[in-house]
Simulated scan of single mutants.
Amino acid sequence: MTVRINGNAGNRAAAASKRGRIGEGGSAVEKSLKRPILKGRKYRNKKVTIDGITFDSKRESERYQELKALASRNLIEDLRHQVPFELAPGVRFSDEKRAKPALRYVADFAYQLDGRLVVEDVKSAITAKAAAYRIKRHLMLAVHGIEVQEVR
């Protein structure tokens, strides 16, 4: 049985060996071959502050400025940021000491458009697929009758 090694992988191993990282001291091998630990935010978004409000991402702050412009032209009313909605009340399980808090969904923006409530959430393609978000979006429609608008 033959085993093929990617040419680049072989070069990396040879270079690591020359630098003394492979073959001497097991812990050095483990450290050099492991992927680096990513530090920072999970989806690599950057917090932005505008008008004294801190937004979770640059895209969310841009959407705020768009909505603010619409509100200044009286096209939308009652613009709010980080609006909480209760999806299920708190409960206390018989086998636990403490009660579990209510399940909530916090929308990025909510406003009135032509007399109806519009709820928006700024999502990237990756975050829109998150299971917790999909469940909460489903519950928003089932419990409150509000369809969350995804803004990308």
Rank of each mutant, 00 (worst) to 15 (best):
D108L: 03
E77V: 05
D51C: 02
R35M: 12
H144V: 06
R44P: 00
R80I: 06
V3F: 10
Y105L: 03
R44G: 00
G40I: 03
L33A: 08
A15Q: 06
E77C: 08
S94I: 13
H81D: 04
E66I: 14
A110K: 10
I76T: 04
G10I: 00
V83L: 10
Y111C: 02
P84L: 07
A130W: 08
V91R: 14
F55S: 03
R80E: 07
A142L: 11
T49K: 09
K123E: 01
S124R: 07
K39C: 01
P89R: 14
R80N: 06
A14C: 03
N74L: 13
Y105Q: 05
S17D: 02
S124C: 08
F55T: 02
K18A: 13
K47G: 01
L103V: 13
A102M: 10
K100L: 06
A28W: 05
Q82C: 04
E62C: 05
D56A: 10
N74K: 14
R92T: 12
A107C: 05
I22H: 01
T49E: 10
E96Y: 09
G7Q: 05
A99T: 07
G10N: 00
L33W: 07
G7S: 03
A15S: 03
S94C: 05
V151D: 04
T2N: 12
I126E: 15
R73C: 09
T127G: 00
A15G: 01
S61E: 11
T2F: 09
Y133F: 15
G90V: 08
